[in-house]
């Protein structure tokens, strides 16, 4: 093929030929086998090596095509297809379950806290800490087990979760000391709640403040848990202030904050 023919093919592919030139070009493809071969290869390259296009196999060796079709249709391939489909469904389900689980956890925690406070104000003599321990259900906080990766950081997270759910709050805090958790809302909640459990309210407040000041999506949750900390530690003035902030800014748990505030004020 010479330069002239190459330019002609290129102009055809770039749709630069006039109607007449195009007609002559197509006619030549019909009669000139060598020219047609050059054109087809050029077209395949032109479409394959451009990210925005794709080179389709419209008319390839039927034997080659049939050989693959046979494999695509055999029993083993059908079984593989079923297994891939099953893995896909399970994977998607797991993702959905995680979302559902998170909502369940949030609702459960809210219900438990609500129950705790209602009970608390109706039975003023009952010890706050005892109630808290009975109803907090921390094992339902979000989990890292389903992340699927196994790098060093994930191992630390899993160790922290294991300790937290095993109510070993001191160990939880020890594990979390080795990793920067300032960009992970769940871990900050693990840490903050561990401090509440250990009665170290000052550090609990510091932890929730880190969450509040962060630019994480869940940053506002810090206010809710901080208000719960204040209630548990009998700092009702501060609890009231924090709850008002939640209500004014329409933060996480606004409705519960309103209920809780009305009970504190009673």
């Amino acid at each position: 093929m010479n330069l002239e023919e190459d330019i002609l093919i290129e102009r055809f592919l770039r749709k630069e030929l006039s109607e007449e030139e195009k007609k002559a070009f197509l006619k030549r493809l019909d009669i000139d086998v060598e020219f047609k071969e050059s054109f087809l290869l050029e077209k395949e390259l032109y479409e394959s090596l451009n990210d925005k296009d794709w080179s389709y196999a419209n008319n390839v060796d039927p034997k080659e095509l049939e050989a693959y079709e046979v494999v695509f249709q055999n029993e083993e391939t059908k079984k593989l297809q079923e297994k891939i489909g099953k893995a896909s469904r399970e994977y998607q389900k797991k993702g959905k379950n995680n979302v559902v689980r998170l909502y369940t956890i949030i609702s459960a925690v809210a219900a438990v806290f609500l129950l705790f406070f209602t009970f608390n104000f109706l039975n003023a003599d009952i010890d706050n800490a005892e109630l808290y321990a009975s109803y907090v259900q921390k094992e339902e906080l979000p989990s890292y087990v389903t992340r699927g990766d196994s790098d060093a950081d994930t191992k630390i997270l899993l160790a922290a979760e294991k300790s937290f759910k095993g109510k070993e709050y001191k160990e939880t805090l020890e594990v979390l000391e080795h990793v920067n958790i300032n960009n992970d809302a769940t871990l900050l909640l693990y840490k903050g709640i561990s401090y509440i459990e250990l009665g170290n309210y000052e550090k609990g407040i510091t932890t929730f403040d880190i969450l509040i000041k962060s630019d994480l999506i869940d940053a506002e949750k810090g206010y809710w848990y901080k208000s719960l900390l204040y209630v548990k530690s009998n700092q009702f003035d501060k609890a009231e202030k924090t709850l008002k902030k939640i209500i004014a800014n329409n933060y996480f748990k606004k409705k519960q904050a309103e209920e809780l505030l009305s009970k504190i004020k009673k």
Binding site: W54, Y56, V60, E64, L65, Y68, E69, F72
Partner: peptide
């Protein structure tokens, strides 16, 4: 057909 389309995609 699906098997044919899959085969074409593989050749491509």
């Amino acid at each position: 057909s699906e098997p044919k389309d899959n085969s074409l995609a593989l050749i491509e």
